[in-house]
Computed example of a mutant assay.
Amino acid sequence: MELIQIFTLAALQGLTEFLPISSSAHLILAPVVTDYADQGLAFDVAVHVGTLAAVVGYFRHEVVSISSDFFRALLSPAARSRESRLGWMIIIATLPVGVFGLLMKSLVETDLRSPLVIAITTIVFGILLLVADRIGKRQRDEYDIRWLDALVIGLFQALAIIPGTSRSGSSITGGLFLGLSRRAASRFSFLISIPTILLSGGLLTLDLMSSDTPADWLSLGLGAGLAFITAYLCIHYFLRFIETIGMLPFVVYRFILGGLILLFLV
């Protein structure tokens, strides 16, 4: 792979994984727009590792606190805390994407990767994000999430199996509809991305293990590193400014992207 291709695809993955604008749409469309050769499964795994390392690294204190309190509460119910409860909510929110991912894997890899599907989902879920941002009460934080809330957010996240939907965008939309603040909806979306990326990365790794394609370790390492840097910075600045800027800039971007796809690629 050429250096410019590695940089472009890794930066796209790092930025779009956590912004509500769909990483899958950008990675599917990038070879079409740029005439790059397909980056291959190994590179997809590498950039997933990079984004996973970024979100775990950014939320390292929360991950340690939630994990330790969760297992402590399993051993002693009297030790239950809001962190252990949040751990259960993360698990519940992850269940739908695991189920839908296994059931729809073959369909997603074939029929749903078309530019028309991506354009429609990009625009439709942009509208839903705008509506949720406008009508949501934005009064709750992630520690107020109940099991039914977590399940609803998980179902929204599962819709992101369809390219163009955006995993972070759909789960944030669900959180906003349920009255979470923008920051809380985003933080919970990023936290549930950890097991979700682990699941998707695990499936990609299983596919990769059955492939005989030789690995370009330099390209994979650069891709993972660049994805880590861009994803970490994206999470930091998104959470810092999201309460101020709102979701409108991302909605406008989705409308423009969907319109361009319909105009030039459909």
Rank of each mutant, 00 (worst) to 15 (best):
L204Q: 13
R140D: 02
F190C: 09
L222W: 08
I4K: 15
Q13T: 04
P214I: 05
A53Q: 04
L265R: 13
A53L: 15
Q157T: 07
G175A: 05
L12C: 11
A46K: 05
V108E: 12
F188M: 10
A42N: 07
L155E: 00
L102T: 02
R85P: 01
L102F: 12
Y232K: 08
C234K: 13
G259W: 02
A227V: 06
V124D: 08
L15Y: 05
F70I: 04
Y58K: 08
L233K: 08
L260A: 14
R187P: 00
S168A: 15
V33W: 14
I4H: 14
G154W: 01
S84K: 09
H61M: 04
D69I: 00
F238V: 14
F188R: 13
I145V: 14
C234D: 06
V49L: 15
V45M: 10
Q39K: 08
A46S: 12
F43M: 06
D133T: 14
C234Y: 09
L27A: 04
L257K: 06
L155T: 09
R85D: 10
D38K: 03
T173G: 05
L52E: 05
D69Y: 00
L218E: 12
V64G: 00
G87D: 12
G87Q: 11
G201Q: 07
S166L: 09
D44S: 13
L180M: 13
S193Y: 03
V124G: 10
R113K: 15
P31V: 00
G57D: 03
R82Y: 03
L41H: 05
L15W: 06
C234R: 14
E109C: 07
I235D: 02
V47A: 11
S76W: 02
A227M: 09
D44Q: 07
D141I: 09
L176S: 04
L75R: 15
P77I: 00
S76R: 14
Y36C: 00
L148D: 13
S193I: 09
I118F: 06
S24K: 02
V47L: 15
L148I: 14
F18L: 10
L107Q: 14
F188C: 05
I118H: 11
L220W: 02
F70D: 03
S168T: 12
T110Q: 11
I28A: 08
L155G: 11
Q13L: 06
L206F: 09
E17D: 11
V45W: 10
V56Q: 01
L263S: 13
D207N: 12
A42V: 00
A42G: 11
A184T: 13
V33T: 01
S24I: 00
D44H: 01
A158E: 01
L265W: 10
Q5W: 04
Y237R: 10
T244V: 13
S170T: 08
R146S: 14
Q157K: 12
P115S: 07
S24P: 04
L257D: 02
V152T: 10
S168Q: 06
F70Y: 13
V49K: 06
T230R: 11
